[in-house]
């Protein structure tokens, strides 16, 4: 632990400001609360929103897990983990069940989250209406008036053009029947995990200076139409080539030499844990 810095990097004033915004965010599910968004030692757009939430929450007894698109070992995840553990001395882990704070970029872990955990999602674009309304004061007005026809129209246009909703990630959701919210660019596969989640979910956008939240046991519905229902990505008949798991989010990989397509778990720690469970029987 580097004692040249404050505990959890921030001065107490910065923490207080983020903490006040976070409490308001929890009280108004799905509403984007503006906050000051401090300069961080990593670039804006590299997870500063999530990092600021993590630093404002973390205490000596926490166990931290950071993932970047399902991986515990990618550069972004490793560096954020290093920064937090250098300035706090807290333990880090790859195991989802052991973590009390999970900061994540673009995935919700496969292992269901529990009551004593907080999931912190990094958000690049917190405004779900930005695609068709560039003005912040206008989108604030649309949220105030619960005027979301544009959000549905956006999906309708996709259906007209391509025959189905083409949101690969960041499919907008309606939270507590009030706010349309960007769930951060998690795959559609993860959207249902937000509904009535056991863990508190906090979302932070550092560059856009917004924090918002989905409290536990809150209604989260992905936007869709009666005749074009919301559909998560389907991995029917496919399984992970390493651990054999089915019913999880899989990455499609193509071997350019043989042109062979195979699938692998996106959540690396889940894949390793499954492999370790199976292995003793296989090796004997």
């Amino acid at each position: 632990m580097n004692t040249a810095y404050n505990f959890a990097f921030f001065d107490e004033g910065s923490k207080r400001e983020i903490r006040r915004a976070t409490l308001k965010a929890i009280a108004i599910p799905g509403y984007q609360v503006p906050f000051a968004s401090r300069e961080m030692p990593i670039g804006r757009g590299w997870g500063t929103g999530g990092l600021q939430l993590t630093l404002s929450l973390i205490g000596k007894n926490d166990v931290l897990k950071v993932i970047d698109q399902g991986s515990d070992e990618s550069v972004n995840a490793v560096n954020i983990k290093k920064l937090v553990s250098d300035t706090t001395g807290v333990a880090t882990t790859d195991h989802t069940t052991e973590a009390t704070l999970i900061q994540s970029r673009h995935r919700i872990p496969e292992v269901p989250l529990k009551k004593n955990q907080i999931l912190i999602l990094q958000v690049p674009l917190p405004e779900p209406l930005r695609y068709y309304e560039p003005s912040e004061s206008e989108t604030k007005k649309l949220h105030a008036e619960k005027e979301y026809s544009g959000a549905w129209l956006m999906l309708f246009e996709q259906i007209m053009k391509y025959g189905s909703m083409t949101t690969g990630a960041d499919h907008p959701v309606l939270v507590h029947d009030r706010y349309v919210m960007a769930p951060s660019p998690i795959p559609r596969f993860d959207n249902p995990k937000m509904h009535e989640s056991e863990a508190l979910i906090l979302l932070g956008a550092g560059r856009e200076k917004k924090v918002y939240a989905v409290p536990p046991y809150t209604k989260v519905v992905s936007l869709d139409f009666e005749d074009y229902p919301f559909e998560p990505e389907s991995f029917l008949d496919k399984h992970c080539r390493l651990c054999g798991s089915t019913g999880v989010f899989l990455d499609e990989l193509v071997d350019e030499g043989t042109n062979e397509t195979f699938y692998q778990c996106n959540d690396t720690s889940y894949c390793i844990e499954t492999l370790n469970e199976v292995e003793p029987f296989g090796v004997k």
Binding site: I26, L57, P215, P216
Partner: peptide, 10 residues
């Protein structure tokens, strides 16, 4: 603060 977060979210 963490207790406030816990109590406010639940």
């Amino acid at each position: 603060y963490r207790k406030l977060v816990d109590s406010t979210s639940r």
